[in-house]
Every structure is written in structure tokens, then in C-alpha cells.
């Protein structure tokens, strides 16, 4: 074959290689890629570790199984991925003590300096009233032996490590007595503003925030047979019906607290993790709103490319329509590291 004749063959082959392999649907190009939001003005990735403990193994019956913790966790993962651009989420159902610690370690290893990291826990909690110590109760907890629990100080240590590596860190704990995580740390509701200057300011400042289902009281499991705890029910509700593109944790917490307190004997609390470097920044949720005719919403995600240029609001940035990913790739570059093409 003369070299010149290879042109047409090579053009055909290269075109096939270069074409995205995914189907077209009603004129909208779809590709497999993690949906992704980036921190306004700083460009970090949104990551989440979500834990939901339903099935407790304790043979003594000290820790009965819960009805809604796992579904709370699944619903949180779904809404964070689909509507808030969390591109790296890890969901663990029925986590043992080791599972929780290993997952926190993995999350800390993935954390990058501008990242937004959310840890969500739904499951049993415990308070040692004589020592005023709070705990998460993993599924392999053994009766009242609190050495098999996860002590708040351990959780705070792990959160401290994550917070030392990321820009914004948020712990949401939906368990009994979770308010003990907030000991000496409550900040209450800070300034709430919709101005660009405000979002820019709190986006650049480091934050290490905590939001809990209650103070030091018992919290309900299944709210009005909704399949969710009251706290997570109203949290999901607030996230789902939020019509603002940017919402800070303080504002979200304010709304959720009011809704929960108005409906059940339980008062969520929020604040900062003491000693973890919080600079009065804010964890900002970015609402990504998108529907595509003819495509199951489960299979639609979005990526918002937020350019961290001065004076630009995220709402002005481009939105690209993409299908749901089949795997996540935390921290991966937009393009893979391939050899440079040459002629």
C-alpha cells in the first residue's frame, strides 16, 4: 500500500478512536463522567463519606436495629451527587468500628487543599452521663462496653486530620446525643447573606463545621413513616426544595433546626469543631438544577465549571449535561495522563 493511500484508512480509524462511544439522545450528547461541582472561587472538589447503620449485631439486644439510618444515608448520597455536584462519595451501610475509621482514613488521604468534605453519620449514639462523653455506636458494638464504640474525641481527631488538609469540612451527625460533639464549640447562626462578597469571603476562609440532629437528647427514628429520621427528613427536604444556587451550612442549619423543632421534640444544633483551624468560613452547597426531557433523572448529572476569577458569580458558569458515572475517580484530572500526540 502506498503511503498516500493510508490517509483515508488512518483518518477513518482515528475518527473512530476519538469519538465518544456513548449514545446520543434527542440531540444531547451524553458521556460518562463524574458529575462535579467546584468550590466557588477556590475550585475544590466536593467529597462525602456517608454512613448509615441499620443492622446492629449485638446479641444482648442492647442496640436494636434501626429502621431508617441506611435509607437516610442512601438518600443523602443521592441528593448530594445528583443535585449538589458531589463527585466523590463513599456510602457505607452497617459500618463496624473499623469500617468507620478506615473510611475516614481513606477520605483524609483523598483530601486536597481546596476540597469540600462532608461526613454524614446516621446510627445509634450513646452518652456516658457520668463522664459526659458522647459516642457513635458502630454495628459491632458489644452491649454497654463503650470501648467498642467510637468516642467523640476519636471522631474529632479524624475530622481534625481531614480539616487540616481540606478547605471546608462538615460533619453531619444524625444520632442520639450527637450534640455532645459540639461541646464548647457552638457558634450558632452566623451572618447570612446572599451577596457575592459574602460568599467569596466565606469560601476562601477555612471552615470546620458540625451539624447534629439533637443536643443531648434521644432522637426519633422513623418520622411519620417517611422512611427517614425527622432530622434527615427535614435536611433532605431543605436540600431538595432549596431554590438558591448557593446556600451556606449556617443558613441550611437554621432552616433545618426550625423545621425539626417545630415538628418534633428535638432541637438540632450546629457549630464549629474547636481547635481545628476554623476561620469562620462556610461550607457552601451549590444547587445544580437540571432536567432533560426523555432521560431518567437518575441518569442525569451535571458538572459546573466554576472559574475562580474575580468578580464572577457561579451562576454565570457553564453547565454541561452528562450521564451518571459508573465509577468515581476522586481527585482525577479532567483528562487522563496520556502521552502527548505527535505528527
Amino acid at each position: 500500500m502506498k503511503p498516500i493511500n493510508l490517509y483515508f484508512l488512518t483518518l477513518l480509524i482515528a475518527s473512530l478512536v476519538a469519538m465518544p462511544l456513548h449514545a446520543q439522545s434527542r440531540g444531547i450528547g451524553l458521556e460518562k463522567k463524574p458529575q462535579e461541582a467546584r468550590t466557588p472561587y477556590t475550585g475544590g472538589v466536593y467529597r462525602a463519606l456517608i454512613i448509615g447503620n441499620n443492622v446492629y449485631r449485638d446479641s444482648s439486644g442492647h442496640w436494636p436495629s434501626l429502621q431508617t439510618a441506611a435509607s437516610d444515608a442512601r438518600a443523602m448520597q443521592k441528593i448530594l451527587r445528583q443535585q449538589y455536584g458531589f463527585s466523590d462519595t463513599e456510602l457505607i451501610e452497617n459500618a463496624s468500628r473499623r469500617d468507620v475509621l478506615k473510611a475516614l482514613e481513606r477520605l483524609a488521604n483523598r483530601a486536597l487543599p481546596n476540597d469540600n468534605i462532608l461526613v454524614y453519620y446516621a446510627g445509634h449514639g450513646f452518652i456516658d452521663e457520668t463522664r459526659q462523653r458522647g459516642y457513635w455506636v458502630p454495628v459491632d458494638a458489644e452491649g454497654a462496653d463503650n470501648t467498642t464504640f467510637l468516642r467523640n474525641s476519636t471522631i474529632r481527631d479524624e475530622l481534625n486530620l481531614i480539616a487540616s488538609r481540606a478547605r471546608h469540612t462538615l460533619l453531619i451527625s444524625d444520632s442520639c446525643f450527637s450534640g455532645t460533639l459540639l461541646r464548647q464549640a457552638s457558634r450558632g447562626i452566623s451572618q447570612v447573606s446572599n451577596s457575592e462578597d459574602y460568599f467569596k469571603k466565606v469560601s476562601h476562609k477555612k471552615s470546620v463545621q458540625i451539624m447534629t440532629a439533637g443536643g443531648v437528647e434521644f432522637v426519633d427514628d422513623d418520622y411519620q413513616s417517611s422512611g427517614h429520621s425527622p432530622f434527615t427528613y427535614f435536611l433532605l427536604n431543605e436540600l431538595k426544595h432549596n431554590d438558591r444556587e448557593l446556600i451556606t451550612l449556617s443558613e441550611l442549619s437554621h432552616n433545618v433546626t426550625r423545621a425539626v423543632a417545630n415538628n418534633v421534640e428535638q432541637t438540632p444544633e450546629s457549630g464549629v469543631l474547636q481547635g481545628a483551624g476554623d476561620e469562620m468560613g462556610e461550607f457552601i452547597f451549590i444547587r445544580l438544577n437540571l432536567t432533560v426531557d426523555g432521560i431518567d433523572p437518575e441518569n442525569v448529572g451535571v458538572e459546573v465549571n466554576v472559574q475562580p476569577s474575580e468578580g464572577q458569580m457561579p451562576r454565570q458558569n457553564s453547565i454541561r449535561i452528562e450521564s451518571q458515572p459508573n465509577r468515581f475517580s476522586p481527585g482525577e484530572a479532567v483528562q487522563p495522563h496520556l502521552p502527548m500526540p505527535t505528527l
Binding site: S15, V17, A18, M19, S329, Q335, P341
Partner: peptide, 20 residues
């Protein structure tokens, strides 16, 4: 030139380029 790629799995990526 034009270059493109298609990931096959977590490790393997098919890639190619063509130009004049």
C-alpha cells in the same frame, strides 16, 4: 491534528491521534 481517547476501565485507556 486531532487526538482522542476512550477509557476502557480503571487502568486501560485507548487513545489515538491523526494529523498532517
Amino acid at each position: 491534528g486531532v487526538a482522542g481517547y476512550n477509557p476502557l476501565n480503571d487502568n486501560w485507556t485507548l487513545y489515538g491521534s491523526l494529523g498532517f
